[in-house]
């Protein structure tokens, strides 16, 4: 029982390190899109690991922890995708080192489609 708790605590610690890396990335990255990338990825794995560790230590709430993990796995990519899409739509400044932008080319080709897209879904 005690070993299980220590294993859980170490997994939680690993998760918190990933969360910290996500925050450092948030500060170091040059533009919105790279920040979304780093933030989403690192924080997703970080939260999953921390919650998993807590679930190992406190088995009463393991079911709810499991639901929470599934929920975060589904919603986190969706929210980051929507934010990135909105950022590109309103034309947030991209970093100078951006090498290629096929999406802008695509949007310029069909401007009328662009305005209606949100309603179409």
């Amino acid at each position: 029982m005690e070993t299980l708790k220590i294993i859980g605590a170490f997994i939680t610690l690993a998760g918190s390190v990933f969360l910290l890396l996500g925050s450092i990335g948030l500060i170091r990255m040059p533009d919105v899109f790279t920040r979304i990338q780093v933030g989403t990825k690192a924080s997703t794995l970080g939260t999953i690991l921390s919650l998993f560790g807590i679930g190992l230590m406190f088995t009463e709430i393991a079911g709810k922890i499991f639901l929470l993990i599934i929920f975060i796995l589904i919603t986190n990519p969706v929210s980051s995708h929507m934010l990135a899409r909105a950022a590109h739509y309103i034309g947030v400044k991209k970093a100078d080192i951006t090498v290629v932008d096929k999406l802008s080319e695509f949007r310029e080709k069909q401007p009328e489609n662009n305005a209606q897209k949100p309603e179409a879904e």
Binding site: I24, K41, A42, H88, A95, V99
Partner: peptide
């Protein structure tokens, strides 16, 4: 993916080369 991103974040040169592809 997370190890990859973590490596990029902590490396002092910030090795990124971003772009939008199709």
């Amino acid at each position: 993916s997370n190890l990859d991103v973590a490596g990029r974040v902590v490396s002092p040169k910030l090795p990124i080369n971003p772009g939008f592809v199709e």
